[in-house]
Design a protein around this nucleic acid. Structure first.
Lengths: 341, 341
DNA sequence: TTGAAAGCGCTAACAT
DNA sequence: ATGTTAGCGCTTTCAA
């Protein structure tokens, strides 16, 4: 209707259409500086009529500021990360900042590449999952000169700030609960761990605590890929065939735990009397299962919110820039699959 | 180690460190133009040693090209969209293009805002869910002068290209199956529809087909928010209390269908004899339930891949720019919850 | 194969 | 309250 040719509109077009200088047009469009109501009207009208969309590339280059926050996570298919994201978005919605997501598929080399790409847009901050990164990644982050928040985990050395839970402690707490409930023959199922440091740390905390009580894991199995629910079923069936005397199954995530639960319910197992179960994450998705799985809420939303708040604060006026280290306490959710003392 | 001060490095720094002109440094870093092996070495070494990260803002402004594809979807919590995304990423991985995601929460005004924000970065293309957009959004897309692919749905008038399934047809096909299987007292459960046009179209196709067979929906209920699994349970229980003679339940998505399934199994219902169930989407997530829910695969990955391919092609050399309209056929998955004739 | 000049579209800083 | 000037850090184009 107004602009059918190819060339995108520039400030100059709006300036000419409204008879106001480019500079003043720019001020109106950014609500910056004093502009009389009259010219403001004229400009806004012209911009709308033309369908002008500002060019942030040019704006960013000129102002040396990009209101983007790079958010780097391992996966979107995991339920867990969309929740973190939603916490981040909610907090950033009240600021000029906008999240931009990059996905690494749990691969350090992908992380390195994604990070490089995102940093080359000169974002105002980085939120990145985990504390384990390649040397090159750490160097890039350290040199970027922007706030960096590592999230989800606090067992390690952050580059700048970090917000998360202690997965070691989470594993320990669950182990203590299980021991207190009187279970002794414990099996473990989870993802292949070289990929997933947080799962590994939970496992370590878990086994170490058992060890202190003189208990050793009876059986364990690791998987990768596929539908977690189905995997949970299969692994559980296989493990109980191998080790029929197990009285507790600890799963590294709720989805495989749910699969195990469904399998045992079908078999008519007495849960939590004969055998107990626990997962990890506290995914809301599973509310509505026949039994509520014992699990531990990793407070993903809260982590996202807190991380975003740190970035937002450090981008505000009198930014302190002081690294923060915030430990969130995961919440134990007893559910129905652990014997009550 | 190399750059502890704040100012980010520029091409000039690399130029000085390597004793090569900025222009040639630029050529090396982009693999463009002929550069002697000797200088190439020098430059790459210097860049790596300094930890130089190119400034894409400046590059984009100078070259008038931004290798980003805006992907605009209603939600990340829906399982469905991450799959579309993963199809898009996979295809774009073989090109210079990179997806950037924006989320609308199913709100037209959010969509408008997200779209405006993304267009102001001058992306090389837009992939956007659905065919229903505000006038302003349509105008922006039409004027952007870049390829636009509307995805997931083809029942309507695309702005440029579109890739998706016909949800009306999907509803119709499911209705035909249900009728053929001999069910007659049919209930429907789904999301509140003003938000979700695709669910609405399925519902329309479904009811119209039933109508042709002289069948009218006996009962229906709509929900929003909360855990879909739990909602499916609750709604199913409530509906069967209200309308005990129902012999089929059609759910607008697999998650609530799964909730209904779990509820009915617990009640000891005879499925699919006494009562049948069907959902929509074919989410892999649910593989591992006690019964396989009858559903229809919306081919989300394929849709994402195809859309990305269109954008990539139109950004290639002799770009045709001709709008494409691609209908994908959803795959019926009979499962265990529909009587076999 | 390499370099120099010009400018992408905007905004900071400084007039007026 | 509004306008003018000078870049932001790159790449395009043209010259050597």
């Amino acid at each position: 209707m107004t602009n059918s040719n190819k060339r995108p509109l520039t400030l100059r077009d709006v300036s000419e259409a409204s008879g106001v200088s480019e500079m003043t047009v720019s001020r109106v469009l950014r609500n910056k500086g004093d502009v009389s109501e009259a010219t403001r009207q004229k400009v806004q009208e012209a911009a709308k009529k033309l369908g002008y969309v500002p060019n942030k590339i040019a704006g960013a280059l000129a102002s040396q500021r990009v209101n983007l926050v790079a958010v780097i996570i391992p996966s979107l298919g995991n339920m867990v990360f969309p929740e973190v994201l939603s916490g981040i978005s909610d907090v950033l919605a009240d600021t000029p900042l906008q999240p931009v997501v990059g996905v690494t598929d749990y691969l350090p080399e992908r992380e390195e590449k994604v990070l490089f790409e995102m940093l080359s847009w000169r974002p105002s901050g980085v939120i990145i999952a985990g504390l384990e990164h390649s040397e090159a990644s750490r160097a890039m982050l350290a040199r970027a000169g922007i706030p960096v928040v590592e999230i989800m985990d606090i067992d390690g050395e952050p580059i700048d700030s970090c917000v998360g839970i202690s997965h070691r402690r989470a594993g320990r707490i669950m182990a203590e609960e299980i021991i207190a409930a009187g279970y002794r023959k414990i099996g473990f199922m989870g993802t292949k761990m070289p990929l997933d440091h947080r799962a590994r740390k939970r496992f370590e905390g878990f086994t170490q605590t058992l060890a202190k009580a003189g208990i050793e894991i009876v059986d364990q199995e690791f998987y990768s890929g596929g539908s977690a629910l189905a995997k949970g079923r299969e692994m559980t069936e296989a493990m109980l065939k191998r080790s029929p005397d197990l009285d507790f199954l600890y799963y590294s995530n709720d989805m495989i735990g749910a699969g195990g639960l469904l399998h045992l319910l079908e078999k008519g197992a007495d849960i939590p009397g004969e055998i107990g179960l626990a997962g990890f994450n506290g995914v809301e998705l599973l509310d509505g299962l026949p039994r509520k799985l014992t699990t531990m809420d990793a407070c993903r939303r809260e982590i996202g919110e807190t991380a975003a708040r740190i970035i937002a604060e450090q981008n505000a006026e009198g930014a302190s820039q002081k690294p923060q280290r915030i430990e969130i306490s995961p919440k134990l959710s007893l559910g129905d699959t652990l014997r009550r003392p």
